[in-house]
Nucleic acid binder design. Structure first.
Lengths: 126, 126
DNA sequence: GCGATATGCAATCAATTAGTTGCGTATCGC
DNA sequence: GCGATACGCAACTAATTGATTGCATATCGC
């Protein structure tokens, strides 16, 4: 499963190659959410330790509970986590779908580069 | 090639699993660099269009040349691009190594989640 | 019901970011 | 040499971020 095969939300996946503006607008907020140490730690915790309440997630953290709440909401906006209410608790869980979006985007960038190298090679060899 | 096989800079890649603090500290700045629309566009341009000077890279951009320069330096700090001087020009090029670092990190997060699901399944079935 | 627990909301703050403008310097090419 | 081109540096600004604190509200469990 891992890299998954379903999901796909980045625009224009039907296209063969070439990154368009839509991809960038989709991918940037996603990477932004991943670009903070505290959020990355939260994500790692949720992915390896399973769902947890805000209290649990902020227990071992240096920053305050409110800070953690805000980070979780940033991750939620990026679609990386989601929450459900359970009594007085709010349980947050890892949402793997978007991770494969990020994956896919990086794949495309890599592929573009490989293609560029191939074209260069072709050019040189001709 | 794509996801590449060489590179590897994130700490502790020899380990079997479990994301540690070192990974997070390495990966966060990397994702941060990717988390901006202008920078992502620059990276896409460099990966698909090949190396280019600041003037060329900022030609079609809405933002100023200096803004582009700053973004390129952020990407360079993250190890995603590198530059060489050529006369009065400074040529920037995509640096694929770090992209596979980001890849690897996302892989690990995905794997952790899969493991967690497996353990949960095990638990339920027992 | 009551105290303890879990979270939500709002105001505030310092630091960082993204971006600009103005000006100086280095190179190119004729 | 000289005008045009390509950058580098520095000062500044506005907006966004990450984080805090204080207080209100909702639930749990006995």
């Amino acid at each position: 499963m891992v890299g998954a095969s379903n999901s796909r939300t980045l625009s224009g996946m039907s296209r063969t190659s070439a990154l368009d503006a839509g991809d960038v607008r989709d991918a940037a907020p996603l990477f932004f959410a991943l670009g903070d140490e505290t959020r990355l730690r939260l994500l790692a915790r949720l992915s390896s330790g399973g769902p947890g309440s805000i209290a649990r997630l902020s227990a071992k953290s240096r920053v305050s509970r409110q800070a953690i709440t805000k980070h979780l909401e940033v991750l939620a906006d990026a679609g990386l986590v989601e929450s459900r209410r359970d009594g007085r608790e709010r349980i947050w869980a890892f949402e793997p779908k978007r991770v494969s979006d990020a994956h896919a985007y990086l794949d495309r960038i890599s592929r573009e580069w490989d293609d560029a190298l191939s074209r260069l090679k072709q050019f040189v060899e001709d």
